[in-house]
Design a protein around this nucleic acid. Structure first.
Lengths: 336, 336
DNA sequence: CCGGTCGATGTGAACGCTAACATGTTAGTA
DNA sequence: TACTAACATGTTAGCGTTCACATCGACCGG
């Protein structure tokens, strides 16, 4: 009842009339312990409200039970959800997850974030930082523990989980081509993001493959940028009939601009996004897009990392294919 | 260069020709150390690539340097951003933050989440769980360390940060009344959420104060629910001219329903939301709403917690007032 | 010129666990 | 019956810090 001082392993041992090591064995599920003894120890723990000290355990066994997540965009829905599921997966296996949010464009921030995690003695690291530079820095700074990247570049010998952005970009583009569009413009994500370049590559390859001319406008994922481009884009003089926009946020801004300009989507112009944010089912018109399963992505990344730590690792790379979600922002091009 | 084994405090001591305790003093910035000695020790650390062991420190000092965040909605933008800023604030002071995501409606999940954090030996806990039940459980289960609640009920002796939801609800309602509306309906958040009841209370009080009849429809924060209510609501027969919707997600869904029904917002019906999500500047029409400053909220919560831990605490409660953001979804009621 | 103080550093133990090895007890085998 | 293997448990020594106290010299006043 009272709680004068946390009991330790010796207190438990005394009460159960065994040695402290036996208590430790019970704690670690050592098989060579008599069930009867085990029960007695367990009962003693219970009655003392015993809680093993993680610090002591870490010190003695040099296993910290800590994992790190380096995340650059925790305030975006996708990554945030992913981090959430990653934590759950890790916790299910008894691991603690420390998530550090960084500004991936600021080398100092990346460095200090990594440093913070290394101080902790993490046993594994997950990078939810799609910016190439940050990934490189982390890979270079972190040695001796497994690192899993999500949606970034990977090498054969590294752990990685990713959405097949190339396939996604290609699928989006092909969808528009199938509808009969020829003059299709792509608004990309920012330079230096793996997702940007890969989606754009999927677009470009598909366009060229259909003997069409790819045209890319640089974006930066931001809603306001989609809006701005939408306001400024010279649609008529260039006779553009379809847009493939690299993410949904920009698409939302873009659609808003179209509405303001009185340009009918999809009658005059088709728009396809990427991500499938919840809101995009409720834009006007509802947005056709490619869905990324962040939950699955996060779970797989964490499992990859955990099995690598456990030494039971078999795969190095997991790939998810984004799924085309048809709504009403795409349709046949206007008749000439 | 090589890294055969992490150096410890004795290795550093030997190299610097001092005792291990002196090294420890340098580590802890003990003032009674000669600058010259300090430099020597620092140099030794540097050259050995010394990293103090957090586990050992925690064991010896019973200070874990760990903080916990219990979060129920990490995949929503607001809380996610908040957690992000909280982590940053904690890290700035050398603390590690373990965020545990829970399902606040599942007692088992809440319990196991708390248990996980207590095992860790956290020195403080932040609750980003607006569900009353979860807060109660956490407060009951966690003793001996400071706990800060965000946007929930609070008692005088507890740490809390909150948006003044009552004032927000009142301000939203007053804005509509000032425009000339009389028949104003409120769509609330779910039962059991502090924010729901307080915003609704602000609404109700303001309505009564103006001799108007409050009408509340139960919502649940979800976008689809806003949409559904929007589709079903009998606006004409009841002659409703304005809606105060308890959050932006529901508002987005609601606006979409209005668009589909051909009901002009704001000419026929005014709509005001709550949160100021980024998207709400780009809905059609752009949504008038109340802004919550999640960043500030998170920072203050963490600072409250940290200063309580440090014993320099002065305040117990911080309040932020949400700010009215005028856009185009509200206007005068239609003329009779 | 001596006891007392203070500043700078050292010494040993303690924190709560696990690892490695030692011991005792039981049962199986020749 | 004695010998060994296997099982169950105990003993001792770390893990890398901090804490509490001890030491040592220099400086001070009377």
């Amino acid at each position: 009842m009272t709680n004068p001082k946390q009991a330790n392993i010796y207190d438990v041992a005394r009460l159960a009339k065994v040695s402290h090591q036996t208590v430790s064995r019970v704690l670690n599920n050592n098989p060579s312990i008599r069930p009867e003894t085990k029960t007695r120890v367990l009962k003693a723990m219970e009655s003392l409200g015993y809680r093993p000290s993680l610090a002591a355990r870490a010190l003695a066994s040099s296993k910290t039970n800590m994992l790190g997540i380096l995340s650059s965009d925790t305030d975006f829905t996708g990554p945030a959800a992913m981090v959430h599921y990653m934590e759950a997966a890790a916790r299910a296996q008894g691991y603690f997850v420390v998530t550090v949010g960084i500004d991936a464009n600021d080398e100092e921030s990346v460095k200090s974030g990594i440093d913070h995690l290394m101080k902790l003695g993490i046993e594994g690291l997950a990078l939810v930082t799609p910016q190439l530079r940050a990934v490189e820095m982390a890979r270079a700074a972190v040695t001796g523990i497994p690192v899993v990247t999500i949606d970034s570049m990977y090498r054969m010998d590294e752990l990685a989980v990713s959405v097949d952005n190339f396939a996604g970009g290609a699928a989006a583009t092909q969808h528009l081509i199938d509808l009969g569009h020829k003059n299709i413009v792509h608004i990309s994500g920012p330079q230096g993001w793996f997702e940007s370049t890969t989606r754009a590559a999927g677009y470009t390859a598909t366009m060229l493959n259909a003997n069409l001319v790819p045209q890319v406008i640089d974006g930066d994922w931001q809603l306001t940028t989609g809006y701005r481009i939408g306001k400024e884009l010279n649609i008529d003089s260039k006779d553009i009939t379809a847009m493939f926009i690299a993410n949904d946020r920009m698409s939302i801004g873009f659609l808003h601009a179209m509405r303001e300009r009185g340009i009918d989507v999809p009658k005059r112009l088709s728009v396809i996004g990427f991500d499938d944010l919840e809101e995009t089912g409720y834009t006007s018109p509802p947005l056709t897009t490619l869905r990324q399963d962040f939950k699955e992505l996060g779970k797989r990344a964490m499992n990859l990392l955990l099995s690598e730590i456990a030494g039971t690792s078999t795969k190095k790379l997991e790939r998810l294919v984004p799924e085309l979600v048809l709504r009403s922002s795409t349709g046949a091009p206007p008749k000439l």
